[in-house]
Nucleic acid binder design. Sequence first.
DNA 1: TTCTGATCATAG
DNA 2: CTATGATCAGAA
Length: 222
Amino acid sequence: MTTPAPKDLDELMQRVDDMAGLTLGQLASHHGIPVPENLRRDKGWTGQLIETHLGATAGSKPMQDFIHLGVELKTIPLSLSGSPLETTYVCVAPLINIQGLCWQDSLVKHKLQRVLWVPIEGDRQIPVAQRRIGTGILWEPNNDEEQLLKQDWEEIMELIALGKVESVSARHGDVLQLRPKAANSKVVTEAIGKEGKTIMTNPRGFYLKTGFTASILARAFG
DNA sequence: TTCTGATCATAG
DNA sequence: CTATGATCAGAA
């Protein structure tokens, strides 16, 4: 059961509203998809399920979600008290050939220009099949939010450009952080090292901290 | 309890 | 390996 791509924003949001309030189990059975016991070996399962229902690019290829609508889809796991449980992965961080790269041209800015957030109960006490899907919200960063993102991005990218990528921890940045992003710690990629030499290091990705996503949801739901 | 660093599955 | 989708789980 695959859903065709939505033709416009109204159709997309209609589908979002249709699934609000359902459990993951209900949505999965509707699409004939088995529900895993837990997400330990299926970390991307929830995101894939929502993509299937909304008609995003069929579960394979490098994803562009709803490229024709300029929308990026993100699911966000919520605790019982309604706050985000996890940081939100944005994209990989470029570690080489970054001279002259500015915020306006960055992957982070482009990915976050317009995001469809779908909150989902994520407390580990709740069986996956019984977790409920919330009301999706379409978000675009306001000036304050973009400035916060831009500042953190520029600070982190400067350190990478200076060959200090291995000294950047998840503690850098207020709303955006740099963390490992790979199958495991043995995976390496090229990066800039001391004195401009090329080194091999663990790939990194940009993540939105939970406080930032929490404020986005707060702004949407009042 | 929260956060950071590590990890899982899949496709090309 | 890169990139998609993220959560796990031990340390702090």
